[in-house]
Design a protein around this nucleic acid. Structure first.
Length: 609
RNA sequence: GGCCCAGUAGCUCAGCUGGAUAGAGCAACAGACUUCUAAUCUGUAGGUCCCAGGUUCGAAUCCUGGCUGGGUCACCA
């Protein structure tokens, strides 16, 4: 909603002069006039009824008259209940449209910010959960950049630990020297298969152990009623203390930590495969990073900071040697930052990594795109950074997003109940292809270009489907809905853009300057202008809230109005040259805004579809 | 159990710093292509905004209590 600069001032000085009401600035409330009433902007009268001792009709009349007299763009007004509806002249909107520069660069804030997203484990391929993370991170980075900030896109790769050791072990035991190349498999999937293989073998081992006397004795000693409940809860202990496979995996981890050359070599080989696969997926998703941090480099960081904080009294040491911080004044708990044996925990590492990143980049703030299961962790981390007095600690933000559920329930990677990222992309693209073939619009286009269109449309559908939902909400993923291409979808918006391009191709001979003669606009044209003018405020809001769904919904709104415009009026067939030129220009600016908006979402626009 | 988040049409979601008769899309039904790409548009139908109180001229929105679902409360990551 666009509120003219002098409208607020005119009303507040009127209230001051005639009713002696001071400081009304933040009580002035405007809404877009609802469709069923006549007007553009509605001023809410209720807050001033008491002070003016009048009724809405009288107050509305007097303000309305005053505005008509003093602001030339106010064409008429009407009062409904406590609402003063103001109608502006068409020329007000037309002028605003003419001076609206779609290519303007905005700078709401020019500080540097680091955005961390994706951050996968290296033992298995990316899945739907990562896809939401990656799309949110990428889009948020684009939005922040468009809002003027210097953005550094990064990730922390969890490349060490027991999980990758499981894949390594399974490959050693069962791999027979196979490689992704010689069996022709995407390399991250190849490594993931060995992780699954390990879990299967371990499960078999565990199940055969469960019928042993030892297992039975343990069960009887436990308080558990039910065997399956007991064995479920005992699984971790079994892995750590009894399992032969567990023992081997753990020994690999120890060897890795001791820098054993063969282990390191194997680790590098398997991680290398995974990165190769990830890059392929990122490339297809059209995302890239400015830097990478590896857990194998950072997992020991933070200890010196703990030492310093211990000296300055930020942390305290218990008798057993473990180090803690009291976060009760931040509404949190006491949190462990160093184990009693002096080794670090997740938090230690995160403290160190934040510090390292600040040293590397001097970023004024950081955004962590991480699922909402880690809300507490980040609250604690930020509180700790604040207590440590870090300059950037007030500008740390956890972009917390809800997990993605399937229609069949929760995703569980250990049970193989996941939607694989690569499969998902293939599905949406092939659906786009089928739809396109049925429509037959692209028959005249070269095969290669057609494939690009299917990809843009398919990925557009998928990305929009995910990004249109407010990040903090849990979302239900129905594979059928995600490839929907009608209604509130990516292709719907792309289609508006394509319609403009189709017209532009035919409008080459039109003299755009003729549009200056257009001064009486259709209602739908004014509506479209209003939407376009909202772009900067939507961008600002999306950046402030770290919320791409604002941009997605905005693009949908714009496209929706354009589609109606397209249906309601003749563009190239307009009677007058001025109308023809104006409508072509209106369409062109619409397309530019849509392309800009979609670029912020990481979605490409096809020229035809 | 403590803390945090969510609950809006059959389904997926907007609206939430209080404002008019709560909006879209999908699905259903009925229409619009000799006309700029019908992946579009128009219409019909669909609601105890989880429940109960409270604050207010006015509550889906704020407060309190409860219900339901999820997350989290590891010397795991």
């Amino acid at each position: 909603m666009i509120i003219p600069n002098n409208l607020k001032d005119t009303i507040s000085s009127f209230l001051l002069d005639n009713y002696s009401i001071h400081d009304v600035e933040d009580k002035l409330l405007f809404n877009e006039t609802r469709k069923e009433f006549e007007g553009d902007i509605t001023f809410v009268l209720f807050p001033f009824l008491k002070a003016t001792k009048t009724n809405p009709q009288v107050l509305g009349e007097s303000i309305g008259e005053h505005l008509m007299k003093n602001l030339d763009y106010v064409e008429s007004f009407n009062i409904v209940k406590g609402f003063l509806n103001l109608k502006f002249q068409d020329t007000f909107w037309l002028e605003a449209f003419r001076s609206f520069d779609t290519e303007e660069n905005y700078t709401f804030d020019d500080s540097t910010i680091l955005v961390e997203f994706s951050s996968p484990n290296t033992n298995k391929p990316l899945h739907l959960g990562h896809v939401r993370n990656i799309l949110l991170g990428w889009s948020t980075a684009q939005i922040l950049q468009a809002a003027g900030r210097k953005v550094i896109k990064t990730q922390i790769i969890n490349d060490r630990g027991i999980a990758i050791c499981k894949s390594m072990l399974a490959w050693t035991l069962f791999g027979n020297e196979a490689t992704p190349q010689n069996i022709g498999k995407k390399p991250d999937h190849f490594v993931g298969d060995y992780y699954v293989k390990f879990e299967q073998e371990f499960k078999n081992e565990y199940e055969s152990w469960q019928i042993s006397d030892e297992a039975n004795t343990l069960f009887e000693e436990s308080e558990k009623q039910d065997k399956s409940v007991f064995f479920k809860s005992y699984k971790n202990t079994y892995f750590n203390e009894k399992s032969a496979l567990g023992k081997q995996a753990k020994s690999l981890l120890l060897k890795w930590e001791a820098n054993d050359p063969d282990t390191r070599k194997l680790w590098e080989k398997m991680n290398g495969w995974v990165y190769e696969g990830f890059e392929e997926t990122y490339k297809r998703l059209k995302v890239e990073f400015d830097s990478y941090y590896y857990e194998s480099d950072t997992y020991k960081l933070g200890k010196d900071i703990i030492e310093g904080g211990l000296a300055s009294g930020v942390f305290y040491k218990k008798d057993d040697g473990s180090v803690w911080i009291d976060l009760e004044d931040a509404g949190l708990d006491h949190k462990l930052v160093l184990r009693s044996d002096g080794t670090s925990v997740y938090m230690t590492q995160d403290i160190g990594t934040a510090q390292l990143r600040y040293q590397d980049t001097r970023a004024d703030g950081m955004v962590y795109v991480v699922a909402d299961e880690q809300n507490y962790h980040f609250q604690a981390l930020f509180a700790i950074m604040k207590k440590l007095g870090e300059s950037y600690s007030d500008h740390l933000h956890h972009l917390s997003y809800g997990m993605v559920d399937l229609t069949t329930g929760k995703m569980k990677s250990r049970e193989g109940k996941v939607v694989d990222a690569d499969d998902l992309m293939n599905d949406v693209i092939s659906t786009a292809k089928q739809n396109a073939i049925e429509r037959g619009e692209t028959e005249s286009i070269s095969l290669e270009e057609r494939e690009q269109i299917y990809e843009k449309v398919g990925l557009g559908a998928l990305k929009f489907f995910i990004l249109k939902v407010n990040p903090k909400k849990r979302m239900v993923f129905d594979p059928n809905d995600s490839v929907d291409m009608q209604g509130t979808t990516g292709p719907y918006v792309q289609n508006a853009y394509v319609r403009v391009q189709s017209i532009n191709r035919k409008a080459a001979s039109i003299t755009i300057e003729n549009e200056k003669g257009y001064n009486k606009a259709e209602e739908i044209e004014i509506e479209l202008i209003k939407r376009l003018l909202e772009y900067p405020e939507k961008l600002k809001k999306a950046a402030e809230d770290y919320d791409p769904s604002i941009i997605a919904m905005y693009c949908y709104d714009v496209a929706k109005v354009y589609h109606k415009f397209y249906n309601d009026v003749r563009i190239l067939g307009a009677e007058e040259d001025s109308a023809k030129a104006f409508r072509v220009l209106l369409g062109d600016k619409t397309a530019r805004i849509l392309r800009k908006g979609f670029n912020l979402l990481g979605i490409e626009m096809p020229e035809r579809m």
